[in-house]
Design a protein around this nucleic acid. Sequence first.
DNA 1: TCAACATATCGCGATTTGTCAATATGTTGA
DNA 2: TCAACATATTGACAAATCGCGATATGTTGA
Lengths: 107, 107
Amino acid sequence: MDIKNQLKALNNSARMQILEWLKKPDANFPPHESGLTFENGVCVAYIQEKAGISQSTTSQYMSILHQAGFVLPTRIGKWTYYKRDEEKISQFMQALNGIMTISGEIK
Amino acid sequence: MDIKNQLKALNNSARMQILEWLKKPDANFPPHESGLTFENGVCVAYIQEKAGISQSTTSQYMSILHQAGFVLPTRIGKWTYYKRDEEKISQFMQALNGIMTISGEIK
DNA sequence: TCAACATATCGCGATTTGTCAATATGTTGA
DNA sequence: TCAACATATTGACAAATCGCGATATGTTGA
């Protein structure tokens, strides 16, 4: 919600990369063994494996991204799937743009 | 230059505010006693006073903003003036936008 | 050349962040 | 109900950052 925490969330290579990977789940992750599509996003285990970080760190990072409003979790059975919240991401970029630039517009 | 350091530079309220103040120097700072306009930006002492932080911290913050490419220093006599580098700021926003959004465009 | 001044750099303790292993919570299938 | 499993939370410690005072550097006017 507040831009300070959103910038903080982005201030980490792994979290940044995760957000990028989630742009195209099918290009970056294997299909879910459960047969589920990526409609609700990607499960934590896959993100962890791809990022090469521990399970606890991965879970924590996803929580930070969630608090920042960048991702949405969906719990299905014992899995939690995370997907990007495009609307919030877009709102963040607009807000940052307003703060950073004079015109408030990308040239 | 690299977006990681630029995000790091923004990850601090004081630095963020300084960048905003420098959008409109004449609205945020008194005229320079030297009679100089804000063409080259604002001297460190004024920034320090407005931000309410120590001289050393102010100098360091300006250095961080400079390394990030967000401001340009001009030394005139014993004073250093800093102004925004609009071009670099714009480039940064474009780059971040490309990384953060799917389309690479602000909607 | 020297004193006064503006800014930069250094060194430090305090706080925050990174990242993990261990453990807790919640879910499913047997 | 229980064992296996996916994820979340906790506790710990190293590394990075914050922000200061002290000091160094560079500039000007006397």
